[in-house]
């Protein structure tokens, strides 16, 4: 069973509560996402799971192994990719990969089938030094190095941060493939739109976990009406809606405004009416299906 059980884990850095009573179960062969803004405690949680940090209280069991007592055994079955690029910038792609393969007592050849997917993207640059790769390539190389010893459990800390949208898509495709060959993958990201690509996601904020659900469950459980609003003066509209006494949450979403009302029986007409009285013109209001992002932004607001 390659699963992860985190129970009542807390961690303090000086006066800062980085993690407060975290409880989390990641099941075997799951692609599990931890979504949260910077400073929410994702990295601390991942470092504890990867045996690089020791929690103050609580227990962490990875595949039934204790993260403090059995850290050596855990290190053999996990592949960890830190948020910060941490390969040797002065070694080439090939040399980095070879080094990590050898220190894990294996060879690139032996586990080539696992890394093949990722390595094909890197192959044209294999003689290039890692420090000279683009952001997306660096992350792919880091993933390769984390995979080269055929881990059962992957812990990826913000692998797509600072990576262009195309590479981000490629990266997620790779993660889905890894899941399909039986790996358990736990990945963190500050991008809420990536939540829908996970099997289950959790939202982290200020060291707390807000909910653990599948993306579909999150949307289903939202239970509020959400409107997309477009006018010719978006900033003013945002201001008026923020002052509106029935507003639950309102935020800019691309070039439109998403608005959530606290009333169950709200109609487009009532909103149009309100905005008209504030002398806004060209108002288009549509009721829409909420996205995971809408749900998370509202959830974070509630807490």
């Amino acid at each position: 069973m390659y699963d992860l059980k985190i129970s009542d884990v807390s961690k303090k850095f000086g006066d800062v509560n980085a993690l407060r009573d975290i409880n989390l179960d990641v099941e075997e062969n799951e692609l599990f996402g931890v979504i949260g803004p910077d400073g929410s405690g994702k990295t601390t949680l991942f470092r504890i799971a990867a045996t690089l940090l020791v929690q103050d209280t609580g227990k962490v069991k990875l595949s039934g192994l204790d993260n403090i007592k059995d850290y050596k055994k855990i290190r053999e079955i996990i592949g960890y990719m830190p948020g910060r690029f941490s390969l040797y910038p002065d070694l080439t792609v090939e040399e980095n990969l070879k080094f990590y393969a050898t220190v894990f007592g294996t060879t690139v050849k032996e586990n080539y089938d696992i890394i093949k997917d990722v390595y094909l993207h890197l192959e044209p640059f294999k003689k290039r030094r890692a420090g000279k790769l683009s952001g997306g390539m660096k992350q792919k190389l880091a993933l390769c190095c984390a995979l080269v010893h055929k881990p059962k459990f992957l812990i990826l800390d913000e692998p797509t941060t600072g990576v262009d949208p195309v590479s981000r898509n490629e990266f997620w495709e790779i993660l889905r493939n890894l899941k399909s060959i039986g790996m358990t993958v736990i990945v963190s990201t500050p991008y809420m739109d990536e939540a829908k690509l996970c099997d289950r996601v959790t939202l982290m904020q200020n060291g707390c976990i807000l909910s653990v659900q599948t993306p579909a469950e999150i949307i289903e459980g939202f239970g509020k009406k959400i409107f997309s609003i477009r006018t010719d003066a978006l900033t003013d509209t945002l201001k008026f809606l923020n002052e509106y006494k029935y507003t639950e949450n309102v935020f800019l979403y691309g070039d439109v405004i998403h608005y959530i009302d606290i009333r169950k029986e709200i109609k487009v007409d009532i909103l149009t009416q309100y905005l008209r009285t504030n002398e806004l013109k060209n108002i288009t209001i549509k009721e829409i299906e909420p996205s995971v992002e809408d749900c998370f932004l509202t959830l974070m607001r509630e807490k």
């Binding site: 910060r84 910038p89 990590y100």
Partner: peptide, 13 residues
Amino acid sequence: ETGTIEQINVSPI
């Protein structure tokens, strides 16, 4: 400084 120690620390070295 370059953070490479993180990767070394999770390896069996």
